[in-house]
Amino acid sequence: MNNTKNTEAERLSFWEKIYIPEIAKGLGLTLKEMFKPKFTRQYPEERWEPEGSYRGRPVLVHEDSGERCVACGLCSRVCPALAIEVQAGETDKDKERFPAKFEINMLRCIYCGFCEEVCPEEAIVMSKDYELVFQSQQEAIMDKERLLVPVAQLQDRLEFLRQYR
C-alpha cells in the first residue's frame, strides 16, 4: 500500500478519531453475530462420522477365513514410533504364516499410516475409531483380540485405498 501518511493519527479521519461511531460499529457487528447459527456440535449425543480418508486407530482386517495378516513384519519395521510388535507363527493351512503375537502400543502410535501403506496384504488399515481413552498404560497396548475388526466395517477405508493408492 502506498501510504504517505506517517502516523496513525494522520491516517484517521475526524469521525474515526472521535471513536464513538467506531465503537457503535463494533457493537453492531457483535450483535449481528449473536443471531447467527452456531457451529457447536453437542458431542456425546451428536457424533461425527469421519470419511474414508480419515486415519484413526490402526486395526487388523478380519475375514471369514481368519485374519489377512501373514506376519511379514514390514509394518513393525516401517513404524517410525516403534509402536508395533509382531511375532510369526506357522500352520499347516494354505496360508502358512500367521501372527502369533501382534501388539500396537497406542501411546506410541502417531497415526501416520505407514503400516497401512507398506502392507502387501491390505491386512492392517486405519479405522474411523477416534475415541481412544485409556485408564492405564497396560490398557493402551492393543493385543490381537482387540485389533481384529470384521472386514465389513472397514469397507470405506478399503475403497478409499483402492481409489487413491
Partner: peptide, 10 residues
C-alpha cells in the same frame, strides 16, 4: 452465555 453467542458458540 452472551460471550458464547457473540462467538457463534452455545
Amino acid at each position: 452465555k452472551i460471550s458464547a453467542f457473540a462467538q457463534n458458540r452455545i
